[in-house]
Design a protein around this nucleic acid. Structure first.
Lengths: 148, 148
DNA sequence: CCCTAGTCGAGAATGATTATCATTTCAATT
DNA sequence: AATTGAAATGATAATCATTCTCGACTAGGG
């Protein structure tokens, strides 16, 4: 019934209680989360999936193309539920918010760059970093309004 | 005297024997290498810098802007000596060859994408993947010439 | 030559990820 | 509702890259 559950099923993953919980938590967060953080969040109060299961689930989601990985600070990996199609990301350096950019105007540049050096193009990848409206607004407000 | 040594000195890193060895090995390789691999290579026959020193050195190089990091397979980090300026990379999925692409035609797209969603642009990053001339040539040759 | 900050190195410690394997659950079927 | 084989789970141990510790060492200025 659940939207999340059917998404799992379509990817060939049995929608178990644990997997659904992991995928839901991932969806709820909306920004990249590490497996560790996810596990902590899921087991803070109520009992939740085991750590190994969380790892297995996020990896399965990534393999199925339903999630993307982001390098998190040190060498850790963070995961985020993403649309399966090709897209890029706009990432807020303040709060970690991630927005998908569907249109791909990078393609021609990538093709040209590859061809020019004798490469057979296979794919490309691009991310844009900055401060989201909220975060840059806060930064500006802190100067002028100095609100309590 | 050494070119490598003076590069280190300019970055505020004392050009010790160990550091120079690490930087030279990195330069010799020309493609991303993990700290582990670098250490193995440096100590295979002759005695070389300790593992901790290799880690410290590649990190220092990265912080100084003389090296870039690449995610290597699993969660490991690989390092490669790079020009300090802004550039992108063309990466061969066959042999790991990395070519720097200096011109940045991605900038306007990144700026537009950010502005359109209220982001204050701070930076962007892009990589192109494919097969280099040699690797795609081999793939083709294997079919037609089947050379020994 | 002596001093001091910067370096080194060997090995212990850390911490994320993965493997193990007995147990449980799924879901299709009887 | 009971059966069943495969898939999934979880507690824990094992791995393995990376970082820390701290005593020894070095370079270069005074």
């Amino acid at each position: 019934m659940n939207e999340i559950a059917s998404m799992l099923a379509e990817a060939g993953l049995r929608p178990t209680r644990q997997r659904t919980a992991v995928a839901e938590a991932l969806a709820r967060s909306g920004r990249p989360v590490t497996a560790q953080a996810l596990h902590a969040r899921l087991t803070r109060s109520r009992p939740g999936p085991g750590l190994a299961t969380v790892y297995r689930t996020v990896q399965a989601l990534a393999e199925a193309g339903l999630a993307r990985t982001f390098p998190a600070g040190d060498g850790e990996l963070a995961y985020k539920l993403c649309d399966p199609g090709h897209h890029h990301h706009l990432i807020c350096e303040g709060c970690g918010l991630v927005i998908e950019i569907p249109s791909c105007e990078v393609e021609p540049w990538a093709a040209r760059a590859a061809r020019r050096r004798g490469f057979a193009l296979s794919s490309h990848q691009a991310e844009v970093f900055g401060l989201c409206a909220d975060c840059s607004g806060q930064a500006r407000g802190r100067r002028s309004a100095a609100r309590a």
